[in-house]
Design a binder for these strands. Structure first.
Lengths: 193, 193
DNA sequence: GCTATTTCTTATCATGTGTCAATGGTGCCT
DNA sequence: AGGCACCATTGACACATGATAAGAAATAGC
């Protein structure tokens, strides 16, 4: 159950077996079935989750009822509403399993304890956050400067395998366009070949 | 010169006077005049800068020659192209002073040394990165879901004072719209009052 | 103070994307 | 197998925003 977590951590910092054993005690395993929620809008985000298996999405719903996907969480990734997790404010996001998922959950108190007992985790999460920030900034710049078609083609180029698991309308809402527009873009691309 | 840096660090972690003296030795002060660049596209980002005074912008230029502003760096903020700084790859961004600036620069080797000698800085930057990521995710969601007018009004609500220093066309390129569209939006808002 | 830039506004027209509505697939479930 | 959600596609139309061009206003330099 903790293999992937152990592997991902070891790629970035070195932890002794003893430390990792302690680390394990801070997490609680949780399974979600397809379409179950880890977090509902309005609730406080009590856990940060490590994805051992499966895929989730973080999304919000605007006044018109349209969904907007902030991110997909793949195997080996972390997922939470950071703001709500850190401040205990109600979340504006939903986090939903897109397939059967196996998660490792950690609460805020345990998370604080982890940093206190094993300071190397400060570094681990600093680096995780660095990479997330870089990726999010790239996506933001794309969103500001690229057409819908460019955004789609870059996404396909970057995540060819991951995308195959996802329905079109979710890809559209990740790109910030409607499913109809995505459909037209795909037709144009197909016709040009 | 180092007052603001000291203050900002002390808000998040505790450092002894001795530690801060060491910290100071790792930075080099640098002044930029208006329109001078800290980083040019294509160069590697050799420094992360702390803004003691002034304002800078990080932006890129697309194939059509349009500028897109990733962020403004205000007093007390950090600025760099993180990706280029960490990997030594050439940067895709420009960083330009919008007014006279006083900066404190740190190189990658010094930055690594800082973490090694004073591990509390891991925590400091973890928290800085957390906040940046939260802010960037918010902006991304806004960019995916809001109209140009909503984005502008939220920006005005969030940074009423900062905005007054900035020319309209830069606000437009931060919002991902043209200056003409921003001009129309402002007229509409003014007419409604 | 006066030109010379730069910045901002306005008008017209073009276009990409959204909206709405209808149709056709595809797989799931007892 | 049939019925039922869910999903993808398509067409007609609307609308927000971009593109281009021109002029007005503000700012900087001498």
């Amino acid at each position: 159950m903790y293999e992937l977590l152990h592997q991902r951590i070891s790629e970035i910092i070195t932890v002794t077996d003893e430390e990792f054993e302690f680390c394990k005690t801070l997490f609680q395993p949780k399974k979600l079935r397809k379409k179950q929620f880890l977090l509902h809008e309005g609730d406080e985000c009590r856990y940060t989750a490590f994805v051992e298996k499966g895929i989730l999405r973080t999304f919000s719903i605007d006044e018109k009822g349209n969904e907007h996907i902030l991110q997909f969480a793949m195997e080996g990734w972390w997922v939470a509403d950071l703001y709500s997790f850190l401040t205990n404010e109600p979340s504006t996001y939903n986090i939903e399993a897109l397939e059967e998922c196996e998660l490792l959950l950690i609460t805020k108190p345990s998370w604080d304890l982890l940093f206190e007992k094993i300071p190397a985790f400060e570094k681990y999460f600093r680096i995780i956050l660095q990479n997330s920030l870089i990726a999010t900034q790239r996506r933001l710049m794309g969103s500001l400067s690229e057409s819908a078609e460019e955004k789609y083609e870059k996404l396909v180029a970057a995540y060819p395998t991951h995308l195959q698991k996802l329905p079109q309308h979710m890809i559209a809402s990740y790109l910030g366009i409607t499913r109809e527009t995505l459909s037209r873009i795909r037709r144009n691309i197909a016709m040009r070949k």
